[in-house]
Design a protein around this nucleic acid. Sequence first.
DNA 1: TCTACTATGTATAAAGA
DNA 2: TTCTTTATACATAGTAG
Lengths: 77, 77
Amino acid sequence: MGRKKVEMKRIENKSSRQVTFSKRRSGLIKKAREISVLCDLQIALVVFSAPGRLNEFCAGDRLYKDSKAVLEQNCCQ
Amino acid sequence: MGRKKVEMKRIENKSSRQVTFSKRRSGLIKKAREISVLCDLQIALVVFSAPGRLNEFCAGDRLYKDSKAVLEQNCCQ
DNA sequence: TCTACTATGTATAAAGA
DNA sequence: TTCTTTATACATAGTAG
């Protein structure tokens, strides 16, 4: 029982990867909502499980129009 | 020392709110990157600290073109 | 504001049902 | 496979420098 330290690489087993995705997705959305409320800001979270395929989307109360422009950039910090 | 349970509402004190934002933002980005690697998917994280004002942006290796279309929607799950 | 510390709250990997 | 449980890893609030 309990857990091991997770290695930061792609999970090869498909079902394990799916389970991890499901768990971490909900955790991530929860965190995003918390920071949105606590810090009074808008946040968008877009997940693609495959090229061009939307999997999840989450935002604050509103989503500002220029978010589109933001995503026209292709940066990764 | 240590910490109390955090109440889920806007932090009124400006500097405390800024500190919390800074800490949680880095945590959120870390989590986003982890799920991106572990589950082999693309993710975008857009934060607006004020209307129309980009504060942070993070994605996976690539960001697909139709992410723009996604953000044209105005939903909040 | 930034770093460091550390007690404590939270997320989650594995396992069981 | 989906829901629980539980041990453990991880995140972070409050504080100090």
